[in-house]
Write a protein that binds this DNA or RNA. Structure first.
Length: 791
DNA sequence: CAGTGAGCGAGCTTCCGCTTGACTT
């Protein structure tokens, strides 16, 4: 029998709070939302004011049953879910589902998990804010309406199983548009002048640069020629104090960005590691949009900074959140105990913890005091001055522990220390270089920079950034990929020892690592949705509906009124699109085949993007799949024709033809019935007979080693080595072997037992026979369940 | 359109936000 039941969202939080509250309080967790809209078509009664039909989520029935029981036994139930829209809704659903009584229920909130905060919350209970709950219902219903009306359009007009939604479709659009920007970018070049000097009698190099840029190589060379006859001297020295300030402590989004830049973690990995640190009690909650720190945290950080670095390094303060969409239900992400400089159960967790610790500590440390020196160096004959910059750190402050990285720090070379100089002083030129520099397009998104952009647009929440990124990749809209880049030449000239040498040098351009690229399907779907659902695809759509949700939360409008206002025109577009829009395949005319004069087109087929010679009427049209990295939008006629050169005849081996081609699993060599994959570093168009024979022989050998064991009891039974380890093959059926068993030692009886356990063999040919295939049985069960709910 | 082991054809797919598990089917 408990007096008080407190319900929070997270079990780790429950554990901590229980300690603060003592024995009169039982603290349990709801594990997030306990109810959601029903799965099928009867989730929302559109004709009846969009009345939602909520059901307890299947994985929550146990939690709900337990909470119900505890609630019944308790004198007071304290609903302590987060203080934001979703949290308020969780409390309301709990109230409804648990059948709570108003006079025995109290709603409390706290933004930080500290004893005073919890005690204060208990002293100040309130009622459930129904207007805020309604705002959440509107959000939920709008997302369902958008997602479940748009996706089926894609199934009909593009391809089955695709999806669309308020968040994901805009995320894909960002990537598609960035890709087009990059591909259409017209790179311009100009010429920059760099120089290095020394002070008389010293070896320390002073680096300088001409602030102006030259448009042509001739202007740059003219400048070098003038410099050739020039004297160099210090014309002016400017010394300015400067400051650098620490960045705010981490939110989910900034944590993901920094972990990506500094540690190279994908966002999902960062969240997984953070979750573990949180569950172990090392850090505060990792899904937050707030930069706020509790009083306790600020005091704790200050104490640790003073202890470890000294009083002058401490600068306690709080930060304010810039993002307007922030709901600030939690603290910033920080260590629970600042005195622990290290925590975590493996190297990756420890690195992430260290990053969080440093960032949080730095946020409470003093500004760095710098002295920036700018020296103008006169080039006597040219009438222009070069600039040399130096920076001295007078007081390192927070830089002692942490410096935030930026996405493009290529140009960002730290200014060094300059030797003492005086105006009028002569300098010796070591060398002067003119270099052609090319402008660059906006960079393609990484997972983390996409999260940053989404947050700026107010799209998505801390709990959904990582899942959204994985969804758009799973749907095949977006691909995380690398590009090798191409070599390009640039002009450079060096003035050294009274001589000018002109040279053409080369550099790599377009190298990409772990960047997000749109696939053909991603591009196609984005164009389709943009054409027919301009409003949903607008980058400001979420911000606009958020404004209306806020009005609902303030009681200014009813939620069903808002939804109705949105749904009427939206649904009209849906009907209209279903009725009138053509099925799309992303077809693009690439050119004409010079041999036959037939049309060459690119489009998306059943198995993905392909090029085709001859239109759909053509009897002898030919097909070829695109290779990875190629897209319908960018493939050239030359590249397309190249694809038709496959399969390519390489030569003969043992009297049989050897050919090379590209299949569903990549490039391969074919020899009789043998297929051997061509390794990544070899080109399918270049591989020669000698190399092919090596691959063929290796494959034959692998085939021979494939058989691990056969059985005299039954010739059809074999244990084979497959792609995923040993498996049992029996009469065209395959069966798994448990991980920890030695496949070679299995006896006939053991193998038969394994087969029996996995449902025995099924006749492949005849249709209705012993035992239905698994998938089918499942589908049937589902259909039955559906029929039931409809009644 | 086409290749490795399964599947081979009827009925399914899908949204966004909260939160963690997991009976091995």
């Amino acid at each position: 029998m408990t007096k008080n039941l407190v319900i929070v969202e997270s079990p780790a939080k429950a554990k901590t709070i229980e300690k603060f509250l003592g024995k009169d309080y039982t603290v349990r967790s709801s594990f997030g939302h306990i109810r959601d809209l029903d799965k099928g078509d009867n989730a929302i009664d559109i004709k009846n004011g969009f009345k939602p039909n909520y059901v307890v989520s299947p994985d929550k029935t146990k939690v709900v049953a337990e909470l119900k029981k505890l609630a019944k036994e308790s004198e007071t139930v304290w609903l302590a879910s987060d203080e934001d829209r979703e949290g308020e809704a969780i409390s309301w659903h709990l109230f409804e589902v648990l059948g709570l009584k108003e006079d025995k229920t109290k709603r409390i909130v706290f933004h930080e998990i500290t004893k005073p905060a919890i005690e204060n919350a208990i002293k100040n209970p309130r009622k459930i804010d129904k207007a805020l709950v309604d705002a959440q219902q509107a959000r939920r219903i709008l997302d369902r309406l958008v997602g479940f009306e748009l996706s089926p359009i894609l199934w009909k007009k593009v391809k089955p199983s695709l999806s669309a939604g308020r968040v994901q479709s805009v995320a894909v659009r960002l990537i598609v548009e960035r890709e087009r920007e990059v591909n259409n970018f017209n790179s311009q070049s100009d010429f920059r002048i760099f120089a290095e000097f020394t002070k008389e009698g010293q070896s320390k190099v002073i680096k300088a640069e001409l602030p102006q840029r030259f448009q042509t190589e001739k202007e740059a060379l003219d400048f070098l020629n003038l410099a050739l006859d020039s004297q160099f001297g210090v014309k002016n020295i400017e010394v300015k104090p400067a400051q650098r300030k620490a960045a705010a402590p981490f939110t989910t989004s900034t944590l993901q960005q920094e972990a990506s830049r500094k540690l190279g973690y994908p966002v999902a990995k960062t969240m997984l590691l953070a979750q573990k640190l949180y569950e172990a009690g090392h850090i505060t909650y990792m899904r937050t949009d707030s930069v706020n720190l509790s009083e306790t945290a600020i005091r704790g950080a200050a104490a640790e900074i003073i202890r470890a670095y000294g009083k002058e390094y401490s600068f306690p303060r709080n930060y304010t959140t810039k993002s307007s969409s922030a709901q600030e239900a939690h603290e910033a992400i920080r260590p629970t105990y600042f005195e622990n400089h290290s925590a975590g159960s493996d190297a990756q967790e420890m690195k992430l913890y260290e990053l969080i610790w440093k960032r949080s500590i730095a946020s409470q440390m003093a500004h760095a005091e710098l002295e920036r020196t700018i020296v103008d160096i006169e080039v006597s004959k040219a009438g222009r001055t070069l600039k040399a910059e130096g920076e001295i750190i007078k007081f390192d402050g927070f830089l002692k522990v942490y410096l935030e990285s930026s996405d493009d720090d290529e140009d960002e070379e730290n200014a060094g220390i300059l030797p003492p100089l005086s105006v009028g002083e002569k300098l010796n030129l070591v060398h002067m270089i003119s270099e052609q520099k090319f402008s660059r397009p906006a960079p393609r998104y990484t997972e983390a920079s996409l999260v940053k952009k989404l947050e700026e647009l107010g799209i998505g929440r801390p709990s959904t950034y990582a899942p959204t990124i994985s969804t758009i990749q799973k749907r095949g809209y977006v691909l995380k990929d690398n590009r090798e880049g191409t070599t390009r030449s640039f002009q450079t000239a060096t003035l050294k020892g009274g001589k000018i040498t002109v040279k053409t040098a080369t550099e790599k351009t377009g190298v990409e690592k772990s960047k997000l690229f749109p696939t053909d399907i991603g591009t196609l779907v984005t164009d389709f949705l943009s054409e027919h659902f301009h409003q949903i695809m607008d980058y400001g759509f979420t911000a606009a509906v958020e404004k209306e949700f806020d009005e609902i939360a303030q009681g200014m409008i009813g939620w069903n009124k808002m939804i109705e206002g949105f749904y009427k025109p939206f649904h009209k577009d849906v009907d209209n699109t279903l009725a009138t829009a053509e099925r799309v395949s992303g077809e693009r005319e690439i050119g004409r085949d010079p041999e036959t004069g037939k049309l060459v087109i690119g489009r998306i087929g059943r198995y993905g993007p392909l090029v085709q010679i001859g239109d759909s009427e053509d009897e002898d049209k030919k097909f070829a799949s695109l290779r990875s990295g190629q897209t319908i939008e960018t493939i050239t006629l030359e590249q397309a024709l190249e694809l038709f050169k496959l399969p390519r005849f390489i030569g003969e081996y043992k009297g049989e033809k050897v050919t090379a081609a590209i299949g569903r699993f990549g490039p391969y060599i074919k020899f009789g019935s043998i297929f051997a994959s061509i390794p990544k570093d070899r080109d399918v168009f270049e591989v020669n007979l000698e190399e092919a024979i090596v691959l063929i022989e290796a494959k034959i050998k692998a085939e021979q080693e494939k058989l691990i064991k056969s059985f005299s009891e039954d010739k059809d039974l074999e244990i084979l080595k497959g792609r995923w380890g040993p498996y049992i093959a029996y009469k065209k059926n395959n069966f798994k072997i448990p991980k920890d068993t030695d496949a070679a030692k299995l006896t006939f009886a053991q193998v038969m037992e394994l087969i029996e356990k996995q449902g025995g063999i099924k006749d492949k040919k005849s249709k209705s026979d012993s035992g239905e295939p698994k998938a089918k049985a499942k589908a049937k069960a589902k259909a039955k369940a559906k029929a039931k709910t409809k009644k």
